[in-house]
């Protein structure tokens, strides 16, 4: 699930001598903008979503146990409805280590540290919290728990630390750019804005 500013993904890939061919959107978001379309347009990547997703752009629907393999890596998708109906998780195998045990799982909005994804955000598309919570319970118990070994790290989508790492501009603004302004400076900003409004 990429952030919308995609330069750093492209730079990271280039630094490793890699090309981005596939973008996985683990789920839809109501509250912020993902960068899958930007990555598609910039590098021609194919977009992957949970199979139940309906989109206005071309995307490959991923079912349970669909496989994408390249080099020594195998990615296996699991449909895990709950946080959203089309949520999915991705098992990541390092075939040099093992072809039967995943080394990591990408849990999107389904599973966090000490918490699970919120099932109560689907009202606008007709899902009750009870229905989504029931789906989430089943996804956790029938998809994730049986397939992910305890020692495999989980990487989820939202996290303050990850957010900071992914957004160096934000980190910079928090560390340096956010300055204390005097009352005079603050008023100047307000009044400059008020003038603009009057003149439009």
């Amino acid at each position: 699930m990429p952030t919308r500013d995609v330069d750093h993904y492209i730079a990271d890939a280039e630094a490793q001598g890699l090309k981005i061919r596939h973008v996985f959107l683990t789920h839809f978001h109501a509250d912020f903008v993902a960068g899958h379309l930007e990555l598609r347009d910039r590098v021609g990547a194919e977009i992957h979503l949970g199979a139940s997703a309906t989109t206005q752009y071309a995307a490959t629907g991923m079912h349970d146990n669909d496989v994408l393999a390249f080099g020594n890596v195998r990615l296996v998708t699991l449909e895990t409805p709950g946080h959203t109906p089309e949520s999915m998780c991705i098992l990541s195998y390092d075939l040099e280590q093992s072809d039967s045990t995943p080394q990591a799982v990408l849990t999107g909005g389904t599973l966090f540290i000490g918490d699970v994804g919120r099932p109560d955000l689907g009202a606008s598309i007709g899902w009750t919290a009870d229905d989504l919570a029931s789906l989430l319970y089943d996804s956790l118990h029938t998809k994730l728990l049986p397939n992910v070994p305890d020692e495999a790290p989980s990487y989820f989508s939202y996290d303050a630390e990850m957010n900071t790492r992914e957004r160096p501009t934000l980190e910079q603004s928090l560390g340096e750019g956010l300055v204390a302004l005097s009352l005079m400076e603050t008023l100047a900003r307000r009044d400059a804005g008020a003038q603009t409004a009057r003149h439009t």
Binding site: R4, D31, F32, V33, N163, R167, T169, L170, S173, G177, L178, V179, A180, L181, S182, L183, E185, T186, R189
Partner: peptide
């Protein structure tokens, strides 16, 4: 910032 608003320039001291 998480919703794409990178336009906070400061705060009233």
């Amino acid at each position: 910032g998480r919703i794409g608003y990178d336009n906070v320039v400061g705060y009233l001291a």
